[in-house]
Simulated scan of single mutants.
Amino acid sequence: MKGSKTCLVLIATSLFFLQGFEDQEDRIFQTNRCALAAAMGLNSDPSIVTKAAVEIREYMRERGINKSFAELTAITNKIQAEIMGPPDSPLQEWEDRARKITESNFCRKYLSNLSQE
């Protein structure tokens, strides 16, 4: 009985650490997503992408997260594909998808914080 409890504690601890890691990865993805969507908007502030890049780099440095250029490019490519959609999508659809992303609760808060810096 005691061995099974120890095993459960180890599994729970492992899942806790994995969940924390996923949250960091998700934050990196979401903050990049917000910045790129905002940059594609009609009334975009060109400094948003620069501010976001600095913030993301600092976030990763503080947490010891190391990503290669290829990994960061893959994240960017995934976001661009989401916003641009199929190759024959009209510009208006790009703008609509970008606006939908920037209007999410997370992005509104994140972009508001970036604008205040």
Rank of each mutant, 00 (worst) to 15 (best):
N43T: 13
G85N: 09
I83F: 09
I101M: 03
K109P: 00
S4F: 09
R33S: 05
A39E: 02
R97S: 09
Y110R: 06
I11F: 11
A35G: 04
G20W: 06
Q19Y: 06
E22C: 01
K51Q: 15
L8F: 12
S14T: 07
G20F: 01
R57K: 13
Q80E: 15
I48D: 01
E58A: 13
V9C: 12
C107P: 07
K100G: 05
T73E: 13
S47Y: 07
R99P: 06
G41Q: 12
Y110G: 03
D96F: 13
A53Y: 15
F29Y: 10
D45A: 12
E62Y: 13
F29D: 00
R108N: 02
F106G: 05
I11L: 14
I48Q: 00
K67Y: 02
T73D: 13
L72E: 11
A37N: 07
R61W: 12
E93V: 13
T31V: 05
F106M: 01
E82I: 01
S14D: 08
L114P: 02
V49H: 11
S115R: 03
M40V: 11
S44W: 09
L114Q: 01
L111M: 04
L8D: 11
E117F: 06
V54M: 05
E62D: 15
R27Q: 03
E103T: 01
V54T: 08
A70C: 05
G85Y: 12
K2W: 03
A70Q: 06
G3Q: 08
I48L: 08
T102C: 04
G64K: 04
D23K: 03
D96A: 15
A35W: 02
Q19T: 02
S44A: 15
G64F: 11
R33N: 05
V9N: 10
D88W: 10
N77R: 14
V54L: 01
A70I: 04
A74E: 05
R108V: 02
S14M: 11
L91I: 15
Q30I: 00
E93D: 15
T31G: 00
I101S: 02
T73K: 14
P87D: 12
K2V: 05
L42E: 13
I48F: 00
L91Q: 11
A74L: 07
M1H: 11
I65R: 15
K51W: 09
K2L: 07
N32K: 02
T6H: 03
T31C: 05
K109H: 08
L114F: 03
Y59P: 07
T13A: 14
E95S: 08
T13N: 03
W94Y: 07
E22P: 00
R33M: 10
Q92M: 14
I56P: 05
E71I: 04
K109E: 08
S44E: 10
G41T: 15
E71S: 14
I83R: 01
S4Y: 09
F16W: 06
W94T: 12
F16A: 09
P90L: 05
S112I: 00
S4L: 11
I28C: 04
C7S: 10
I48V: 09
I83Q: 04
R63L: 14
